[in-house]
Write a protein that binds this DNA or RNA. Structure first.
Lengths: 225, 225
DNA sequence: CCAGTATTCCAGCGATTTCTGGAATAATGG
DNA sequence: CCATTATTCCAGAAATCGCTGGAATACTGG
């Protein structure tokens, strides 16, 4: 009982989504877009690829309806079409992690993921942040912090961390977070902080997981007088 | 701050999964494998493609660690590597449905999906089946019924339905199910049954959703004396 | 050990994808 | 309306993918 052409069309449609996530470049763009809206050039810079190429990949993502655009003057901002896309991306990521031994091997290769960083989970972080028991530190680029960050978090992009250590309290425990468990920013931040004598740990997740869990998120830098 | 080569490798790994679901043929194979384990030739027959080609696609799925094999004599059975793969497949399918208008259009084109079939949900079906208030009818090929079916369901593959109507009670309501909401078997069965004067409805989901929800599943035909 | 069957390997081709660099388009600020 | 900037469109070249058909391999049952 071979399938008729009608269901073939359906599988063709599902494969549109599949094709969209079949390229490492597009995966990286999705990863960045999970952090929030961003312009073409900024995406190209963050991903280390040419603007032309970035634009092309973004078209592919748009053709699969995974992203949408918004024009602001001469600039065009891309964003995920909705939260389901982010959720799907995370489930792809988690599947890769659980199925592909190579992923775990690569993560382990960064030396710092296991117990080393004393990772802290969502619930514990929420609880302790509420009691002002820890300082939550966002080490992603400023642009991403502005787009969305954990409510109450301080922003010091990794590149500026060494110069700005003075802004951090010497006593309190610092919890650094970044894009997610596959991102290297927070681990590197923890390493730097510890070398300088701070008590630092890593947040197990990243901003997207926090946001999707419905926990408090803030945008821009409003609130600091 | 362009990403270094280490995270590039990570994205490469994620893309392995993406590439695996970038082909409509492989999507169809995954859909079939969500119903249960199956041999190469059976998969080829069900998907209407050559054995050689099927084998090749299955290799691709195995390379991405989405499927595993089991040898039984001269035959090789393929199965999903674990439930997470099935869950991922369902989330891909649901994302396609919510994001791609074409999918909804195609489903509507089958004429029969809306209120027409009076679809019944998981909880209601479970409740009514428990009270023996409905007959649950599996209209998938016998092979898939044997691999796994809703506990208590009767098997009449769609192709044999017209000849075997006598096996069904004339009074009771019949709920037909198949592979899932994208599958045409149950809708066609409902159509046939109604033409012959039966009261028939469609189950909203398919076997995979039922199984992943932890609801009772049976294998083979054991239990019928 | 041989014949038979199920599956995989392999070469080759046409189609598709990816990246690059240059040209075209769209909105802005004088 | 022109120069500027951001983005997209458009070839063209290299790499990859998907399908086919024939050969090779692996196991079974005699």
């Amino acid at each position: 009982m071979p399938d008729d052409s009608r269901s073939a069309e359906l599988f063709e449609q599902l494969a549109r989504i599949g094709k969209a996530v079949a390229s490492p470049r597009r995966i990286e763009l999705l990863d960045l877009l999970c952090q929030g809206e961003r312009g073409v050039e900024a995406l190209a810079r963050a991903a280390g690829m040419s603007v032309t190429n970035t634009s092309q990949h973004l078209q592919a993502l748009r053709e699969a309806r995974l992203v949408e655009t918004r024009r602001e003057g001469v600039r065009i901002h891309y964003r995920l079409a909705d939260d389901d896309v982010c959720r799907f991306f995370l489930s792809l990521r988690d599947l890769a992690r659980s199925r592909l031994a190579e992923v775990e091997r690569l993560l382990a290769g960064y030396l710092l993921d296991d117990g080393e960083l004393e990772p802290i989970g969502r619930d514990e972080l929420l609880e302790r942040a509420r009691r002002h028991d820890v300082v939550v530190l966002d080490v992603r680029p400023a642009e991403e912090y502005e787009a969305a960050h954990i409510a109450g978090a301080v922003s010091i992009p990794l590149g500026e961390l060494e110069h700005r250590l003075g802004e951090l309290p010497a006593r309190a425990e610092i919890v650094a977070y970044c894009r997610g468990p596959f991102c290297l920013l927070a681990p590197q931040a923890v390493e730097i902080l510890r070398e300088r004598g701070f008590r630092a740990r890593r947040f197990l997740d990243g901003l997207p997981e926090w946001r999707l869990a419905g926990l408090p998120v803030a945008t821009a830098t409003e609130g600091a007088p």
